[in-house]
Design a protein around this nucleic acid. Structure first.
Lengths: 120, 120
DNA sequence: CAGTATCCTCGGAGATACTG
DNA sequence: CAGTATCTCCGAGGATACTG
């Protein structure tokens, strides 16, 4: 472990990594990569997320400069979330993982079944 | 959200994704990608991980067929962890993220500072 | 519509000690 | 060396209700 890399727990690269290693960020960023979306659209798109976690994660992503929140200042409210260039570059890497998961989850399922049966 | 993709909370692609979205798995897999390692080596390599979380995460990765545990059956014990081909393919994708974090964490730091100062 | 505000619970994860 | 076994606590995150 050379200092300054992700293996160093005192380095803020690790903070960045933990931001990424969030199950919601891992879905929100790829979703926004497809197209900018509103709160309600994200709620529908991402199954199982609560309004609370959506807002919370979006705020954190906005805070870190990955997502841009644009409030159209209308009534009723219209707020749109877009990826920043930085967020887009991360979204690309994350969508690779999403596709990996879609492609290989059956292999994982089978491996788990094998593993669990061996140690009955 | 078409059913069967990661946005579907009932699909096991999501289980796969949550396995990936673990801060420890995100460090262990890329570490093992560099070279097969023993328990103690991983403990040293990955700063801040506890023995408990290391074992726990390794078991889960083994269970899902991503990591191969080979016990040399000697005294004192000698156990080595290797990536399976499947694990290696995931490790590649994850190390992309690790490098992304190393490259861009300063940008994130700056964005956070800006954000926090705006809303004093 | 796009959020806050509160309450409450469950389990993730650290610390510590022990074992084959 | 490579793990288990306990105990413990803190906070992530769900449910629900309210607001501009």
């Amino acid at each position: 472990m050379k200092s300054g890399d992700v293996y160093d727990p005192t380095c803020s690269a690790r903070d960045a990594l933990e931001l990424i290693a969030s199950k919601w960020a891992m879905l929100i960023l790829p979703a926004l990569r497809e197209e900018p979306m509103r709160n309600s659209a994200l709620l529908r798109k991402i199954g199982g997320i609560s309004q609370k976690m959506l807002t919370q994660t979006l705020r954190e992503l906005e805070r870190n400069g990955l997502v841009i929140r644009s409030d159209k200042q209308t009534r009723p409210p219209h707020v749109e979330y877009t990826l920043s260039p930085l967020g887009a570059s991360l979204g690309d890497a994350l969508s690779v993982l999403d596709r990996w998961a879609e492609r290989h989850f059956t292999a994982l399922d089978e491996a788990r079944e094998r593993f669990d049966n061996e140690r009955v």
